[in-house]
Design a protein around this nucleic acid. Structure first.
Lengths: 154, 154
DNA sequence: GCACATTCAATTGCGAACAATTAAATGTGA
DNA sequence: TCACATTTAATTGTTCGCAATTGAATGTGC
């Protein structure tokens, strides 16, 4: 009985009961799936995320990319310098507001989008999941993320 | 029309359609929630995960912790050294197999478990979610993670 | 116009995360 | 037994991720 009481009290601390660990470990699992695919493009996963943002719209300041990806300049500045060294982007100070650095795609950076189109399909296969299932999970996770950010943000 | 065709072809590359980004950004959101709570315990989030494993069962080799958390020695060795420096654990070579380093909790490491009991409840509040909802999501995410790992592992 | 606060990116320092390699201990087959 | 493979941690080097600080540019209230 005492034994069982203890086990019950320990439930909230059990690793397998933690949704945060599920998400943490799933993020690593995705990273492992993406790695060989992105190696061919010459991108890391966070660099791929930045490129996704830029393929939607480039010529944007660092801050906008950071807000989109929930990353700050401490992460983005060196990452963007590596993307510039790889010739995928160009960083230029804004004329209108010299505090801002605008990020634009180079022709190779634009061209990389075509090579990247193969990636999502291969990840989909690895997930062994249907698009509607993934979409539903995605919406739940985004809603959870936004509530967590709201709880911290205020 | 041509405009719309392009937009359709771009859908798989849109950031907001990517479940991997949902998970990636949710992991960071969790980290932001945990940070102030774990600061009081003197732990980082990955260190907290290691302690969760050890609170369930200690005296285990590094490899076991790694398999549980999907981490390798390159990550764990320095992390465990920091936990040892903080007096929460003790690292000792196994007598039976000198390749193994066994990780045991110190009394302060054991005692920390009691302080940690407050953490899950506070994260639950921040999630603004019911336990059954979180549990259902957790199971879906774990299943997805395991399929991803299986796709890479083979 | 001028002190003051705010915004934006860069920098520094620390802690993961992982690939690749190394070294020591152990296991195995001939 | 002895060559060889395997297992286990540790190490090295690169890339995130973030807190805290800095410095320049811009906005503001008086």
């Amino acid at each position: 009985m005492a034994r069982k009481q203890l086990a019950v009290a320990d439930q909230p601390l059990r690793l397998d009961n933690q949704i945060c660990f599920a998400i943490y470990s799933a993020a690593h699992a995705f990273n492992r799936v993406y790695k060989p695919l992105l190696d061919r493009l010459g991108l890391t996963y966070p660099q791929y995320l930045v490129m996704l943002v830029l393929w939607e719209k480039d010529g944007v300041p660092v801050k906008d990319i950071g807000e989109r990806l929930f990353l700050d300049s401490g992460t983005l500045t060196p990452l963007l310098k590596r993307l510039e060294a790889a010739q995928f982007i160009k960083r230029t100070r804004s004329k209108e507001d010299e505090r801002q650095v605008l990020i634009a795609l180079t022709p190779p950076g634009q061209a990389l989008k075509e090579k990247a189109r193969a990636v999502p399909q291969q990840v989909l296969v690895a997930s062994a999941c249907s698009i509607p299932e993934l979409s539903a999970m995605k919406n739940e996770i985004v809603a959870l993320r936004d509530r967590l950010n709201a709880a911290v943000g205020e």
